[in-house]
Every structure is written in C-alpha cells, then in structure tokens.
Amino acid sequence: MSDKQFNPRILGFLCNWCCYAAADAAGVSRFQYPPNLRTVRVMCTGRIDPSFVLRGFIEGADAIFTGG
C-alpha cells in the first residue's frame, strides 16, 4: 500500500434488527463515513461466538465492531 497513513481494516458484525438497519438508514440519509468497515450480517449480536471475533483478528482485522 502506497498510503502511509494508518488505514485500519475493521470487521463489523451487525444485528439485522438494529445496527444493520441503522447502517441502511445511514445510507438512505447519505451520511458519509470512512470506507474501512466490512460487515457480516447476523440476526442478533447474541449469535456472535467469541471465536468469530478471534478469527477476525487472525484474518487481519485491526478492529472488530459489533453492533446490536
């Protein structure tokens, strides 16, 4: 990467009913935010097994975001 700035890669787990919906709403309202997030939709954050978080870090995530 030529960009020397710290450009974190964030993996997000979004609850279908709230945070995923909020991300949709952000889109509808055209809120602009940095493009560093990659998301996985789940039906509830309760679904997130701790191993998913660890796996995310193994795969190179700089941060994990859970929204629910």
Binding site: A23, A26, F31, T39
Partner: peptide
C-alpha cells in the same frame, strides 16, 4: 449491500467504495 452500505455512504471515494464492494461481494 453495496448501495446503502457503500455507494451512498462513500459517495466521494469511488475507488475505496469499489474496493469495499469487491470485498463485500467476495465475503
């Protein structure tokens, strides 16, 4: 979701948005 979570919210960064779309599609 490459509209609500991508093109609409990264309207000024087409390259980053395309990269994100590629990632999301791959996932």
């Amino acid at each position: 979701n490459i509209r609500d979570h991508c093109s609409w919210v990264h309207a000024n960064e087409p390259e980053a948005a395309t990269a994100k779309s590629r990632d999301l599609v791959r996932m």
